[in-house]
Design a protein around this nucleic acid. Structure first.
Length: 489
RNA sequence: GGUGGGUUGGCCGAGAGGCGAGGCAACGGACUGCAAAUCCGUGUACACGGGUUCAAAUCCCGUACCCACCUCCA
C-alpha cells in the first residue's frame, strides 16, 4: 500500500513518490504572529502534524519546516495601535502560538524559521529574479521591487487560472500603477515608508531600506532548509492564491523546481463565516480549553477530514469530547486489570520504531487514502468495541493486542493520552494528591462494601453520593469498585 | 466575470455505481441491589427535477441555495 495524497496543483489524488527514497521534506505555511491564535488557526497545524506523524510512522525520515511570519503590514499596524514595538508584539504572539500548539500536542517542527531572520536569503533570491528578467525595481523611487507576472507564462498554473481572467487588483489605482508594470505584479520587497513605519522595520538592501514582501520569505526559507526541490508544501486553502501561486512562480522563475505536491486544509468557520470575522474571543485557544481538554479539541479536529469544511460549534465539540472519553475509558479499564503502561509504550518512543503489533489494515488503508482520519477513527472505535468485549474475560493476549493497537493508532494521530507531550497531570504533587485522595476514598469504599454486604442499599448509595459530591465517580466492576475523577465536559 | 468546493438520518461526520463507516443523542434488551460503564439490538439519510444503468447518495444534464479565493486571512 502506498500513501496517496490530494494534490491541489493537479486536482487529483496521486501516489506519493518522494524525491529521495525514504525521506520526506515538508514545508507548511505557519502563522503571521499578529494576534492570539484561535481554533481556526490551529487546525492547519493539527492536520499537517498528522501528515508528519503518519509519514514518520511509515518509516520516512521527515524534515518538517513551519515558518513564522513576524513582519508584515498587520503586525506593524497593530503594534502601532497598541503603542509597542512591532517585534514585541510579534514575539509575544509567537509565544502564544507555541503555547496553543503545545496544548494540542502538535510536535515542534524540525525547524521554525522566521522571516526577519532570513532577509539576506530573500535579497539573494530577489537578485536572481531581477537578473533573470522576472523582477524589477519600481521606477517611481518607492524602493519597491515587483515580480513581473507577464514575464512568467506559467503564472496561474497552481490555481488553474489565467492572468487575464483574474479580477483586476484593487490597488490598480494611479499611484500603484506608476510602480507596477501590471496590476497583478506582486511585491518582493517593500521600500521603507519613513513617514508611517518605524526604522526598526527596515533592512538595508540594494534597492534602499525596506522589508520583505510576504511571499518571498517562504520561497527563500523553503529553499534554504529543504532545497530547491522538495516533496510537500502545505497550508490553508486561502493561501492557494495569491500566496502559493506567487511562491511557486517566483521560485520556479528563479530556476527551482520547488514543491512536488501541494496540500491545503479547509477552514473551520463559525456561523458560516471566517473566524477572523467572528465576534468575541470565545474561540481563542485558552478559552476553548476551559471547556474541553486539549486532547479533546485535537480529536474534534481529527474526526473530520482535513479537506472538509468544518462548521465549529461547542455542541459538536462536546460530542467529540464525549466520544473520545469512550476510547480513554477502554484504556483505563484495561489498565485497571493490569494491562497498563507496560503494554502501552509512550508514543514518542514509538514514532519511527517498528510496531511489534501491526496497526489494523483498515486503519493503514484509511490513512494511506489521503489521510482519511474519519475512517481511521472508525477503525479505532471498532477496535475499542472488540477490546471492551474481551475485557469481560480478563487479561488475554487478544486484549493486549487490542490495547496496543488502540494506543498505536492514537499515537499516530497524536492522541495518546499517555504521551508526555500533553500537559502533565502526573506531576509529583499531583500523584501525591492522588494517593492522598485514594486513601480517603478507599476508606469510604470499604464502608460502602460493608453496607452492601449487609444489603443496606440506602447506606451504600448515600456513601456513593457523598463521594460523588466531591466530584468523584464510583463504578462497580467485576474486580471491585473503581473511582475516577471524570473530566468535566 | 474567473477558479475551487459544498448541500448526507435528531445532531456531528465518512463514503463516491450494488453490500446501512463511525460517533453523539434517543429507545428496547442483557449485566447490576440500584446506578455507572460495557455489550446486543432498533433508524430505510443522502438539496430539488430529469436522465443513463439490471442497479445511482455515488455518473450525466438542469435548478436552487451555500461557502472559499481572485494581491499579503490558517
Amino acid at each position: 500500500m502506498t500513501l496517496r495524497l490530494y494534490d491541489t496543483a493537479t486536482r487529483e489524488v496521486r501516489d506519493f513518490v518522494p524525491l529521495e527514497e525514504g525521506k520526506a521534506g515538508i514545508y507548511v505555511c505557519g502563522l503571521t504572529v499578529q494576534s492570539e491564535p484561535h481554533v481556526g488557526h490551529v487546525r492547519s497545524a493539527v492536520n499537517f502534524d498528522v501528515l508528519r506523524r503518519w509519514l514518520t510512522h511509515q518509516g520516512y525520515q521527515v524534515t518538517f519546516i513551519r515558518n513564522v511570519t513576524d513582519i508584515d503590514d498587520k503586525i506593524l499596524a497593530k503594534a502601532a495601535e497598541q503603542g509597542r514595538p512591532w517585534f514585541n508584539l510579534a514575539y509575544a504572539m509567537h509565544r502564544e502560538l507555541d503555547k496553543a500548539l503545545a496544548s494540542i500536542n502538535v510536535l515542534p517542527p524540525t525547524y521554525e524559521p522566521s522571516a526577519t531572520a532570513h532577509v539576506p536569503e530573500m535579497l539573494e533570491l530577489i537578485q536572481t529574479l531581477i537578473a533573470r528578467g522576472h523582477a524589477y525595481p519600481a521606477e517611481d523611487g518607492s524602493g519597491d521591487v515587483y515580480f513581473d507576472v507577464r514575464s512568467w507564462p506559467a503564472y496561474g498554473e497552481l490555481t488553474n487560472q489565467g492572468v487575464d481572467d483574474m479580477a483586476p487588483a484593487e490597488d490598480a489605482d494611479p499611484p500603484m500603477m506608476a510602480r507596477k508594470r501590471d496590476p497583478r505584479d506582486f511585491a518582493l520587497w517593500k521600500g521603507w515608508k519613513k513617514e508611517s513605519e518605524p526604522e526598526s522595520a527596515a533592512w538595508p538592501s540594494p534597492y534602499g531600506p525596506g522589508r520583505p514582501g510576504w511571499h518571498i520569505e517562504c520561497s527563500a526559507m523553503a529553499g534554504k532548509y529543504l532545497g530547491t526541490a522538495f516533496d510537500i508544501h502545505g497550508g490553508g486553502v486561502d493561501l492557494r492564491f495569491p500566496h502559493h501561486e506567487n511562491e511557486q512562480a517566483q521560485s520556479r522563475a528563479a530556476g527551482h523546481a520547488f514543491a512536488s505536491y501541494w496540500l491545503h486544509n479547509a477552514w473551520i468557520t463559525t456561523a458560516g463565516e471566517k473566524m477572523s470575522k467572528s465576534l468575541g474571543n470565545s474561540l481563542l485557544i485558552p478559552e476553548v480549553l476551559k471547556r474541553v481538554r486539549g486532547i479533546e479539541l485535537r480529536f474534534y479536529m481529527i474526526a473530520a477530514h482535513y479537506r472538509s469544511h468544518v462548521e465549529f460549534s461547542f455542541e459538536a465539540l462536546d460530542e467529540a469530547a464525549a466520544g473520545f472519553r469512550r476510547i480513554e475509558n477502554f484504556l483505563d479499564r484495561a489498565a485497571a486489570i493490569g494491562i497498563g503502561h507496560d503494554e502501552r509504550p509512550t508514543s514518542p518512543a514509538r514514532v519511527g520504531a517498528p510496531a511489534d503489533v501491526p496497526l489494523p489494515d483498515a486503519f493503514v488503508a484509511a490513512m494511506d487514502d489521503d489521510l482519511g482520519t474519519p475512517a481511521a477513527v472508525a477503525v479505532l472505535y471498532d477496535t475499542v468495541r472488540e477490546g471492551n468485549k474481551l475485557l469481560a474475560d480478563g487479561p488475554s493476549p487478544a486484549l493486549i493486542t487490542a490495547v496496543r493497537q488502540v494506543v498505536d493508532m492514537l499515537g499516530v494521530l497524536g492522541l495518546d493520552p499517555t504521551d508526555p507531550g500533553w500537559p502533565s497531570a502526573t506531576s509529583s504533587s499531583d500523584s501525591r494528591m492522588a494517593a492522598a485522595v485514594d486513601a480517603l476514598v478507599q476508606g469510604l469504599l470499604a464502608e460502602r462494601a460493608d453496607a452492601r454486604v449487609a444489603k443496606d442499599w440506602a447506606r451504600a448509595d448515600a456513601i456513593r453520593d457523598q463521594i460523588k459530591a466531591a466530584g468523584i465517580e464510583v463504578e462497580d466492576t467485576p474486580a471491585g469498585p473503581v473511582w475516577t475523577l471524570p473530566t468535566t465536559g
